[in-house]
Design a protein around this nucleic acid. Structure first.
Lengths: 202, 202, 202, 202
DNA sequence: CATGAATGAGTCTTCATTCAT
DNA sequence: TATGAATGAAGACTCATTCAT
């Protein structure tokens, strides 16, 4: 207990509360995730406890997002990095995101619910979109993606991905089915972003 | 509850309240759309009025969804019907949905907010998905769509469409830009659902 | 109950709550006059009731001040008007204010407590000071008051008056003693504001 | 509670906390001076520290009052003692109290705020009143003060003095203006307490 | 001596719903 | 039909105090 790095989510209680909050959000949705419910889920006797450890609801939310992204990044990052080329990485992104459902269903559901409600305007959420958008632009420059509007595509495809993932997370299927779902969606997205085939020879 | 004389949106008062509710939801979001706020917006002196005309919040919500879909259908329906072929209809669907933002921004924003919050799991929402899914299957049978998973594609693409529309509705651009956005997104989706090009000539 | 003028403090419930609030403030002080306590004192089952009738604590407070000033004005006004000359009016002001304790002890205590805590920055409080200050200036112009700093004197004397009144209100003495107290204080103030006696004959 | 080794303000830590408390009370007012705020202002990591050193909020408050009175006494005492005669001492009391604002504005504001809220009914406050009352009686016996009610005058005048001082302390003016204010108020009080001039020669 | 996490009652406010009129 | 006052639970948040370490 002593000589602990005391990182961001640390202090034991904070971590416990964050964990409970994520699970509650995943269960009942962000809108109904009250301090009371979270405290009860965490086995705390009062909501004062939460207010003691977090500056407010926004603060708790931010901590949840940070925690989820850490977990998410740890899972998806290596898988994406292992892929070579913009197309393969897009595929890896989609597939690993879907696969994540099998590992951390609560985290996935919670994050999506938070994002949906626009509760976390932080760099976190916008960052993801910007990253994908940039990835699209880079791929377009490299000639492996078509000349679509990168920003619009990023928004549409990532949100669609979220929806599929959220649906899957609601009742996590077995890994095999999950993998199929990932490949399926990745294929859809790869086709959507591919260069127009007919344009070349003509 | 018994002897509902009028039609669907019936009674004038109901219509007035529904209209106010839609505008309030579009303005402040579903989560903050309380009876009090809606009553004030509608020029009613108390919330009792609302409770009197609607069985509960869910009922009001359902009425809003119904109203929005009527408006939506009236706008998109003819445009979709005018298109020939599954691909052209998909394109018409996407483009007219985006164009709708220019006509009924409040309705569009409200509906998406309601859907996001999962408040209306009713036939309404699922119905749209089922319809699109069926459209995909039909197109696949006709050979104009590829062999993708129709259900997953419907979910991903429609949700992505919602996100783009919601973003646009937040600050409605001029019709020209809106049209471009529609074509852009439609192109993305047409490509995503197209048959695999390499397989054909060989 | 019908065809009632519906003035400011009206609606029955509002008046009831204001009355309770004044009594509670008089009893336990402004700082401890919570909605809970006021509701209990008023025989209401919940604090929501208060929030329903008043926009917030400030609103309730303003209503209390308005009510108190109406009562106060009705008592003091005629007595002050009946006096002739600036000095006599000052005396009437002080004496009637002290006498008021015998009539509305709760109102007096509550108002002073509210003023002390600076909770009501409204015209109400500042208005009184400004009025007295103006009265002093007019008397000075008429030659019946000395050349003191009108603003400072108004502040010091009125606050001193409040303190005496508050003390008396804490345990209202009989009218005779109250009258003596009023005359006593009035004498003090009349002397304080009198022209310098030595300057005259010389 | 037993065997308090040090003196009154003892222990360094106590002094530090008292200093912080006084500043906080002067800044945000007594009502909002929570342990949390005081601890933060004092650079302490938790409020437990305060509870450890003081039996309760009342205890801390008493310590603040004591500290302020020590400071106040050190400033006003010599100035009052330097004056000769009851009238001159009254004048010295008022003037030095007003002048104190220029030296210790925080202490002055804090004390007045504490007194206003009646938080310290302790010997401290009543003591001051009793002292002044006694001074009046002595002066009356010596024939330099008029035959007014000593208790009432002490209450009214001292409270008025507090109000003037508090107002000045809110935005401390330059020493010159402060001195003028002191003389002004002292003159008012000297007149108020003077023997009736008309009665003598006639 | 000192810490700081924990407590639980307390703050005001908002909410959807009910009910007598 | 319509009204609007009443309800009471729930909302986030603050507070002074306690206690094991």
């Amino acid at each position: 207990m002593l000589m602990r790095a005391k990182t961001f989510t640390e202090s034991g209680r904070r971590a416990q509360i964050v964990k409970a909050a994520i699970e509650v959000i995943a269960e009942v949705g962000f809108a109904k995730a009250s301090f009371t419910r979270i405290a009860k889920h965490a086995g705390l006797s009062s909501t004062g406890m939460i207010s003691y450890h977090f500056a407010g609801k926004d603060d708790l939310l931010a901590a949840c997002v940070a925690e989820i992204e850490e977990v998410t990044g740890a899972f998806m990052g290596p898988r994406i990095d292992a892929a070579e080329g913009h197309v393969a990485q897009l595929r890896a992104y989609v597939e690993s995101n879907v696969a994540l459902v099998g590992e951390h269903p609560a985290a996935v559901r919670a994050l999506i619910d938070i994002v949906k409600n626009g509760a976390a305007q932080s760099a976190a959420v916008n960052g993801r979109l910007a990253l994908v958008e940039e990835h699209f632009r880079a791929g377009q420059a490299a000639g492996v993606f078509g000349p679509f509007d990168a920003r619009t595509a990023a928004l549409a495809l990532m949100t669609g991905l979220d929806a599929v993932v959220a649906t899957a997370a609601a009742a996590p299927p077995d890994p095999t089915e999950l993998a199929r779902l990932g490949r399926e969606l990745a294929g859809l997205y790869v086709r959507a972003t591919a260069p127009d085939p007919e344009g070349d020879p003509a």
